[in-house]
Design a protein around this nucleic acid. Structure first.
Lengths: 291, 291
DNA sequence: ACTTAGTATCGGTAAAAGCGATATGTTTGG
DNA sequence: CCAAACATATCGCTTTTACCGATACTAAGT
């Protein structure tokens, strides 16, 4: 009754568009998928696909079942992932990957505590863009990511929000925007915007283009440098801008419109295969208090 | 691989304490449960139960698997519940059950809108304690509950928080507490407290006894009446106390300690068998904006 | 009309779930 | 200390389910 395989056949059919294609994806023959769907329809006492045309299309009942099927399969995948952690082998080396905009000083504060609890474990830090970090996590390495919240986080990753980092609008002291108070977003469009872009060409979901005239850099310190040199305005995390602002080289643009000053959410990410291991739990626990 | 039945056998064993008892609960024979656990152990590549003694006891690996197994089975149950709503029979009559402390005026504001969308559906309102409402919901009637958040909500119920109701400390004008400003909770212990208790003897999780001298009533209007008559002090929702305060018969005790003035969370509850039906979704949607 | 890609159904095989009987191990209590 | 009571593990056997491959049929494009 409502076996995992039936539901796999169901969502595979929805995603591929046909029973045959679903069968190919699942490595079964078409008749098996057909049967599974039929059994599922009997269990549900409802028709899930409209079969008049060449390709089956979801009925209303099918659409309503789909999210529940997805949820169950996700949970099933999570269970399978977690099982690998049952053997409880504390890895000898774990990596913490930071988005470049995250203040390292905050994160490094936990090193001592972690080493005290797990003295035999080697720690490695690396810096990368959020998207690169998500990419690294696909491989289920013993890696914990600390990134700005992304909209699309794969289902096999566990994540939780641990705080926020404040972003503001900055220009060089010498820049023509520096004197004025921006009353609207339109005044920004008249000047070049300096923006982050990750190494792989995808652009992160939380960076937003405002000006039509854009110049990309691949990390915040380049961005800061470019801003200092007067090439345009940029959003920067407060801790990145802080020093230059103190030195009077950089100015925060006072903003009359609300949205431009915002708190970017910071998430901790771990692969489900790891997130049950004690050392990863401890690490999450420690990271909760750093921001 | 990781079939539903194996996991059912697993949690049944954990909950009943033995394979035999689990088999009895599941309506199977003992050897089947035994086999399921063995297969599960092979799949997990870990021993889940310590079998030295008479009763099997969970190993570490077993304990770590358990929450995942629970989660998957809950999701499975949810799916089975939801399937019954696939036939999409909009019920001809639905009931909205309110905790007595919830302001009816707020809830009744949605009647018009709901009737406009579902003119053929008859509405019924009833008032009961939170625990009684949870009890009613067990039967999967077409019922929506609006209650103060309870700690223990059964897994087959869907719920969401829709806002808060403000509770304060009240006494009659004539009461000896009326003049003074309570500096500490201790001064309250010297007087009789008037408290809610539901019809069934259980006491709700969010009511808290402060004074050793307590008098119970089973709804907020009795409580108000008793308070007005000077029998003691009580926590009352602002909307219940409002009229008597205006009339000068009741006084809100100014509170120097923070915790006594608090926002009670209000939840909407529906049985999973119903929560997917369009009319129940609409109802939830409407209830989100009333507080 | 003919090809292509898909679905439904059938018969047969292999795997899995189920049962009942039995051997064995662990507690409890006389 | 032995026996009764209760558990678990394993075996042979039956039933159910999953799967495959072959075949007949249907929809869509050329």
């Amino acid at each position: 009754m409502f076996g995992i395989e039936q539901l796999q056949a169901f969502v595979a059919t929805v995603e591929t568009g046909s029973f045959s294609a679903a069968a190919r994806r699942l490595g079964k023959v078409q008749s098996v998928v057909s049967q599974h769907i039929m059994n599922l329809e009997i269990d549900c006492n409802a028709t899930l696909f409209e079969r008049s045309g060449r390709y089956p299309t979801l009925t209303n009942a099918g659409s309503r079942l789909l999210p529940h099927a997805h949820a169950l399969l996700n949970q099933h995948q999570r269970l399978k992932n977690s099982v690998q952690a049952l053997s409880d082998i504390t890895p000898s080396e774990i990596t913490i990957a930071l988005d470049e905009g995250i203040p390292f000083k905050a994160v490094s504060s936990i090193i001592g505590e972690l080493q005290q609890i797990y003295p035999q474990v080697t720690l490695e830090f690396l810096s990368a863009s959020s998207l690169d970090i998500i990419d690294l996590l696909k491989k289920a390495l013993p890696l914990t990511g600390v990134i700005f919240s992304e909209l699309n986080i794969p289902t096999y990753l566990d994540y939780e929000c641990i705080g926020t980092v404040c972003f503001d609008l900055y220009v060089a002291k010498s820049h023509s925007l520096s004197g004025q108070t921006s009353k609207s977003i339109d005044s920004l469009r008249l000047h070049r915007q300096l923006l982050i872009r990750s190494k792989n060409t995808q652009t992160s979901s939380f960076q937003l283009k405002i000006s039509p005239d854009i110049l990309y850099a691949d990390n915040y310190f380049l961005l800061l440098e470019l801003t200092l040199q007067g090439h345009g305005w940029s959003f920067l995390p407060a801790h990145v801008a802080h020093e230059a602002v103190q030195a009077g080289e950089l100015v925060k643009l006072p903003m009359e419109f609300e949205k431009m000053h915002w708190q970017a959410n910071v998430d901790v990410l771990q692969h489900q295969k790891n997130s049950d291991l004690p050392i990863f739990k401890t690490l999450r626990q420690l990271l909760r208090n750093i921001l």
